[in-house]
């Protein structure tokens, strides 16, 4: 534990004093509050007396132009993670503080662990505060208290958000170890994010078309082909952590979602459109959650090993 807490507190203080943190926080607050404001406008018309789990709709209802909070979060978390991690090691190296700190009596891993932990806590505080504020506003404005299941779902939602953020942060930390310049590491991390967010759906579509070609006439007569096409596309999409996170979030916050793949009409005929219990929702996204955790752990492990083995040169 030697030095870990010292590094952690120092990094945490640095984060909170940095302009970067203030910008990110105001961005998240602005997006969150506007999304919820719009959601509140439309939520009244959607909800009838029999609607269950109204509280969760605060996070998932969109109002015309503005996407729901959920979509904002899917976009923002990678940015927050990258912003908190992209210069963690290489900026210390280039400013000459790293060799000075490492000549102090602390284990080398205390530096990287302390930094990672501080980033995680910073991100956690951002997310918990905005979700709490939204919850408070909702409570006051729609007047429906959340049920215990809703509270659990929100807590799980927060936990998954933090894991997802941890993935992007560990990726950014890895790049900050691999690349000497902060600009390079930031761009590399953003490039990966853009790839997963914007290009992955196109690539998935192309690959699915290549593996299961669909012509107009065939598709009409053979629904199994369409299902297969869809499955291939999903499978490829799920390589991307963005998809994993998106699907997991939707399942947890929209309890009526019961499957993430395609369904045939005949399968839905006897379905009762009521929300799934929390346990069932979790069961659907369990593979997603474990993959996300695994990705984070892998990224962090590579950074850890790289950092422990890296030569410490003054120049």
């Amino acid at each position: 534990m030697s030095g870990l807490m010292t590094v952690f507190w120092k990094e945490l203080a640095d984060h909170f004093c940095s302009k970067r943190f203030i910008i990110l926080l105001s961005l998240i607050y602005l997006a969150g509050l506007s999304a919820v404001y719009v959601a509140l406008q439309t939520i009244r018309s959607e909800v009838t007396g029999t609607t269950e789990l109204v509280f969760l709709r605060l996070f998932t209802t969109s109002g015309g132009v503005l996407p729901p909070f959920l979509v904002f979060i899917i976009f923002f978390i990678p940015i927050v993670g990258i912003a908190l991690g992209f210069d963690s090691i290489n900026s210390e190296r280039s400013s000459g503080t790293l060799s000075r700190i490492l000549s102090q009596p602390l284990f080398r891993d205390a530096v990287i662990n302390g930094k990672f932990l501080a980033g995680l806590v910073t991100m956690g505080i951002m997310l918990v505060s905005i979700v709490t504020i939204i919850g408070g506003m909702g409570l006051r404005l729609i007047g429906v208290p959340p049920s215990s299941e809703e509270v659990w779902r929100i807590l799980i939602f927060l936990g998954v958000c933090i894991i997802y953020g941890a993935f992007w942060m560990s990726l950014a930390v890895l790049f900050s170890i691999l690349f000497e310049r902060t600009a390079t590491s930031a761009l590399a991390a953003i490039a990966i994010w853009i790839f997963f967010t914007f290009f992955m759906p196109m690539i998935a579509g192309l690959v699915a078309d290549a593996i299961v070609p669909l012509s107009q006439s065939e598709a009409q007569s053979n629904p199994a082909l369409i299902v297969k096409h869809e499955e291939v596309e999903r499978m490829i999409l799920r390589i991307s952590p963005t998809t994993l996170f998106g699907e997991a979030m939707v399942t947890i916050l929209v309890p009526t979602v019961r499957t993430l793949g395609p369904m045939l009409v005949r399968e839905t005929t006897r379905m009762i459109p009521n929300p799934l219990p929390l346990r069932e929702s979790l069961l659907i996204v369990w593979p997603h959650l474990t993959s996300l955790i695994a990705l984070t752990v892998i990224c962090f492990a590579i950074s850890y090993v790289k950092f422990m083995r890296q030569e410490i040169r003054a120049t």
Partner: peptide, 26 residues
């Protein structure tokens, strides 16, 4: 150890920088 290109945290004062070192030295 005083490295060749010694660096400090530029946003912190001289005293805060030294305080970090003392804390790392328990």
């Amino acid at each position: 150890y005083l490295p060749e290109k010694v660096g400090f945290y530029e946003d912190l004062t001289a005293r805060q920088n030294l305080a970090y070192t003392t804390r790392l030295n328990d």
